[in-house]
Design a protein around this nucleic acid. Structure first.
Ligand SMILES: Nc1ncnc2c1ncn2[C@@H]1O[C@H](COP(=O)(O)OP(=O)(O)OP(=O)(O)O)[C@@H](O)[C@H]1O
Length: 758
DNA sequence: GGCGCCCGTTTTTTT
DNA sequence: AACGGGCGCC
């Protein structure tokens, strides 16, 4: 069978067909952007079902977004003529969530456990920090949470984290981590990370369960494999334990989630992880014109240590890639809107053909303003996630509490919206009582005998609240989620609350509330074979896993605005990558760390390769950030592209003002963040480090220099061993006198060093 | 004890 | 510019 590279499906080249026809054993499809990896994955699933008679229920497909999973199902359905019923498909998180529902008891949860998002988990971490007397001023809760998350994603236990902790932050993180799991368990809750980690733990502790899944899923397929982390690798390994029938597809040059634990080695070492793996390379690009592809290839070639891939264009000709210099972010946004408008009338492109991609969500603001000014329809992907909006969080916290009375995090939020005369003191006291009695706060709140230490008014409010939730729970047992929501909103008079809280935003917020209600009304519980969960449980578990791109409606006639990260895997005829400036893209803090800079460059490569026919790369001379306007320089990523590959344009505004004219009278203006390192010290000329001179020749203030003596408020005296980086991200390597401290790398922007001491 | 206002801070990407 | 924490007033 395998010899016959039969034309299993039309629209596939020979290499693709080979991959599609692959039946058993591990296979890696390593190929560049737009080479049809996703198409191969999809076709192979169809082929397994159609030509090999594999029942869909024996297939597990992991995609990067739930939307991609849905689209894949749909395409397979079209290839086969019927939906692949029974096939499991989704993100690692949603698949993990589903498995965890079945095995909840093994990790001390019930099947309707609550999924905590980042904010929820951070709330728990803050409370645990308080309990351990770790001040949030000394150590940022976010830093703790990041470290715990890193540990989880690499499957490290609290003990292991503690053992490896060299610095105070990690030590604190390890201590909090140790308390976190029991706390989450008591709340019948799991974090995002737990959705991966807990199933892996179940597989490890219960091989018979692992084997059952491995038996069920005879074929495992993973898209975007370059962005999987250790826990995800382990997950795949476990499910493929019995057969190694794993197909992974990916592109090491598109690995852009290293910052959240993704490990590029997963794909690079696939052949070692799964011996005898077949490797298929796809070298034809079907998405972009040769000009776009040339820019992409040139951009990524600056990265070292790549696995190396060939990528040839198959499409003909096409326009040049255009670089656009603009004055500021507003000028940039205006230019973008005007250009799309011009293209729309001149070339007849649809608005849905265009996408504006940017590095940070905050860039969307200026863009949105321009789109609105011109009444041009747009849709914003991601940014503030729907379920992150305050009004939605408020109501969802009630729903969570109704579904899961152990959820203290939800209790804390719900009990204070709207205000019930219960403040921090009462709630913390209630929390303490509950902890001692080992009861959920909701339960304690309803027990008059337990809360007698509280003020009568507080007692009364708690009693009423608990009764109200009890009534809602009864309602939830029989009513639909939207009915429940309506009753809830009425009961707590949420509409009036929104009015009081902010009359200006009340309208928009209640629109969102209505969207939540209709979303609930549309809920279809279609997950086969899952019993014992109420519609509310389903609604909540699904809602927590909805990503920004999942709600992207590609049929609407509107321009898409989103971050480069969100654009992964997508394609648009016309793409504008905005904000190509050093400090923004690449981001300042990544510039001096080679591995981070390479990830930024991969992100640029991802952005460029989203374009099918036309690509614009824009940048601005100045940009507002944190309320302050800063000059910025053309991105090094643009400089890395050979001249001649780009057609250069300038906006009228920029041309009429003349380059740099506006800085003539403000020579001390620093580019992004540079000012953070400037110190007003009369350091002698010879002490200024030569390396930094060319960053801004006009600067006349001193930077720290190698060998200089300094004093740090925490670590004491020390000597500067090295200075690295630019802008806001200048780091100093300092040898501290205190041997317990030793050598440390410190970001100068966040520290004050006293100099010339000792 | 609760709540509102003002001041200070700010990492960037997401499930 | 926006959010969160802390302080001070009711
Ligand atoms: N053999 C082919 N003939 C024609 N078009 C193809 C072929 N293979 C793929 N395509 C098209 O090329 C485009 C890119 O395919 P696909 O999204 O599968 O690539 P990919 O490798 O997954 O890309 P990325 O790495 O950017 O996610 C799609 O529009 C797809 O329909």
């Amino acid at each position: 069978m395998s010899l016959a590279a039969v034309d299993v499906h039309p629209g596939l080249n020979p290499a693709q067909q080979q991959a599609v026809a692959h039946f058993e054993g591990p296979i890696l499809v390593l190929a560049g952007a737009g080479s049809g990896k996703t198409r191969v994955l999809t076709a192979r699933v169809a082929n397994l079902i159609e030509h090999h008679g594999v029942d869909p229920s024996r297939i597990l497909t992991v995609t990067f977004t739930n939307k991609a999973a849905g689209e894949m199902r749909e395409r397979i359905g079209r290839l086969l003529g019927s939906e692949p019923r029974g096939m499991w498909s989704g993100t690692f998180h949603s698949i993990g969530a589903r498995m965890l529902r079945r095995h909840a008891a093994l990790v001390g949860r019930t099947p309707n456990y609550t999924i905590y998002d980042e904010t929820d988990t951070l709330g728990v971490i803050k409370r645990l920090m308080e309990r351990q007397r770790i001040s949030a001023r000394d150590i940022a809760p976010k830093a703790i949470s990041n470290r715990i998350s890193d540990a989880k994603n690499s499957l490290s236990t609290p003990e292991e984290l503690a053992a490896s902790s060299m610095d105070p932050i990690t030590r604190a993180a390890a201590a909090v981590y140790a308390d976190l799991e029991p706390e989450m368990r008591a709340g019948n809750a799991v974090s995002f990370d737990d959705l991966l980690v807990l199933p892996v733990r179940v597989f490890r502790d219960h091989p018979e369960i692992r084997d059952r899944y491995s038996e069920q899923f005879r074929f495992v397929l993973v898209d975007e494999y370059q962005d999987t982390n250790r826990a995800q690798y382990q997950f795949i390994r476990s499910v493929a334990h019995a057969h190694s029938n794993v197909m992974v597809v990916g592109d090491d040059d598109q690995s852009i989630y290293g910052w959240r634990g993704a490990d590029i080695r997963n794909i690079l070492d696939f052949e070692r992880h799964f011996p005898a793996a077949r490797v298929v390379r796809l070298e034809e690009n079907y998405r972009s014109t040769p000009n776009i592809l040339a820019v992409a290839n040139a951009a990524i070639s600056s990265n070292v240590g790549r696995k190396g891939k060939t990528l040839r264009a198959t499409l003909p000709g096409g326009e040049q890639v255009t670089e656009v210099a603009t004055l500021d972010e507003r000028d940039e946004a205006e230019w973008i809107v005007e250009e799309i408008k011009a293209r729309q009338s001149r070339d007849g492109i649809a608005l849905s053909d265009a996408a504006v991609l940017y590095r940070t969500n905050s860039q969307s603001r200026a863009l949105e303003d321009s789109f609105r000014r011109h009444a041009m329809p747009y849709r914003l992907v991601g940014s503030v996630r729907f379920y992150d909006r305050r009004e939605i969080r408020d109501l969802v916290s009630y729903l969570k509490l109704i579904a899961n009375p152990w959820d203290d995090e939800a209790f804390r939020r719900a009990v204070s919206v709207p205000k019930r005369g219960l403040g921090e003191t009462s709630i913390d006291t209630l929390g303490e009582i509950s902890r001692k009695a080992q009861l959920p706060m909701l339960e304690t709140a309803g027990r008059a005998d337990l809360v007698d230490v509280l003020r009568p008014a507080a007692r009364k409010a708690l009693g009423e609240f608990s009764e109200m939730i009890a009534r809602m729970r009864l309602l939830a047992a029989e009513a639909s989620v939207d009915e429940l929501l309506r009753d809830l909103i009425d009961t707590i008079q949420y509409g009036a609350y929104l009015q009081v809280e902010g009359p200006e935003s009340a309208r928009e917020r209640s629109d969102n509330v209505n969207a939540l209600i209709s979303g609930a009304a549309e809920l279809v519980v279609e997950e086969g074979g899952e019993v014992g969960l109420t519609p509310l449980d389903h609604f909540l578990q699904r809602a927590m896993l909805i990503a920004g791109v999942d709600v992207l409606d590609s049929s609407a006639d509107a321009v898409t605005l989103m971050t480069l990260h969100n654009a992964k895997g997508l394609e648009f005829p016309m793409v504008i990558v905005a904000g190509l400036e050093d400090g923004l893209f690449p981001l300042g803090q990544s510039i001096d760390e080679p591995s981070m800079l390479e990830e930024e460059r991969r992100l640029f490569y991802v952005g460029v390769t989203r374009a099918e026919r036309k690509l614009y790369l824009t940048h601005a001379e100045t940009r507002r950030r944190n309320g302050e306007t800063m000059p910025s320089m053309r991105s090094r990523f643009l400089k890395e592209i050979p001249a001649g590959m780009l057609e250069e344009r300038k906006t009228i505004k920029l041309r009429s003002l003349g380059r740099r004219s506006m800085f003539v009278d403000s020579p001390s203006r620093a580019t992004w963040g540079e000012r953070a390192v400037r110190r007003n010290h009369g350091t002698p000329e010879w002490r200024k480090p030569a390396v930094d001179r060319d960053v801004d020749a006009s600067q006349d203030e001193a930077l720290y220099v190698r060998g200089e003596r300094i004093k740090h408020k925490l670590f004491g005296g020390g000597t500067i061993a090295e200075i690295a980086g630019a802008g806001r991200d200048v780091k100093a390597v300092i040898d501290f006198d205190d041997e317990n401290v030793g050598r440390k790398t410190i970001k100068l922007a966040y520290t004050t060093l006293e100099r010339g001491l000792g």
